[in-house]
Design a protein around this nucleic acid. Sequence first.
DNA 1: TCTCCGATTAGAC
DNA 2: CTAACGGTCTAATCGGAGA
Length: 421
Amino acid sequence: MPVKQIALVDCNNFYVSCERLFRPDLAKVPVVVLSNNDGCVVSRSNEAKALGIKMGQPWFECKALAEEHGIVAMSSNYALYADLSNRVMNILGEYSPLREVYSIDECFLDLTGMPKLRDVTYSMRDRVVKWTNIPVCVGVGPTKTLAKLANHVAKKHPRSKGVFNFNDLNEAQQTKLLSQITVDEVWGVGRKLTKRLAAHAIQTAQDLRQAHAPTLRSEFGVVMEKTQRELLGISCIDLQEHAPDKQQIISSRSFGKPVTELVVIQDALSVFVTTATEKLRAQNGHAALVQVNFLTNRFRPEQPQYNPSMTVPLPQPTNDCLVINRWVHHVAELLWRDGYKYKKAGIMLGDISPVTMVQGDWLEPVMASDTKLMMAIDGLNSRFGRGTIKLSGGDLREKWGMRQERKSPDYTSDWAQVPAV
DNA sequence: TCTCCGATTAGAC
DNA sequence: CTAACGGTCTAATCGGAGA
């Protein structure tokens, strides 16, 4: 069996690249995109990276530097990113039916056996930029982990012109390359493991590859063992063409300002229930438990802290937002304590299983009336926009909604906001 | 003592 | 001028409860 050719295509600075699409004036300017609530930096242009802005850095910490250098910061616009992501993924899907959309900006493709592979990978890169204006890099290797590393090489070395194939290296070249890559660049090795590995004198990808396997297994567990085998070219992580159904669905948000009233949190929770049950119904599931939690601001340790959470089993599994909302509101009352500044709240739907049609009659499957109502709600919301039909009327969003002071217009979902040509 | 289950940890992006 | 540090998800592992 020939060696596999697994490609990882990764969009460069994805959110920033999306924002630049409709703002060509930002092409050479340092740009960052902020997380929800304008909290921290989640995407940086190369110029912003060069100025020392760190991934995940709180935005207020960057403000002085930003003003000094004219860094442009944007609130995140997920509708825009999701739309552009779909366009990129559709283009890539034409190169191979064996495609795993791994994240909003990354995609694995199995290109094994493809003639003129080198030309194909360059063509992918060119076509995506040409058709979407989103620059991407392509890494190829015999396993997903090595494809990831190859992508890292493609990004880092300008000489590669955005494409790098690990399979083109001989044994000695592989060893040399992996010795130059620190172990924290390896997929699955994060901050904590990097430290623990260092204690075993494992500093580079090559160190990890040639470490004593049984020791690695007993000290670091099966995940690390798989990572090592993947570095050796033995595939342990399969391509997942179809995303599996979710086992749990979370909806939570930090508030724009501290919340001190139960009704305000209740209002937020209703919105969370709406979005969570929409996702649940989209995968044709129902949940058997729901969890509610509140959090105070952990970055203000001088303020009184209270982070309650309660899980309730539902008497019957359901995906009905009205039913779940009643439980959530009830639990919220039980958890609530006056005198705290709440910073965040959320719900989690768990113990999810597929809905099986209730068979009441051999000819006519019975559909509960609440199911029909939910389908009607989903239909209207998808046709006329999310929020057309929603729970609870209290217009309290202003009291908890997130800060988004620098959001770009909805270019791809609202004609009225597209700039005139 | 073993098994099950919820909570915790570590990772990714 | 407020207030000023994300959100979702999975798999593995840990630790206590109950059989």
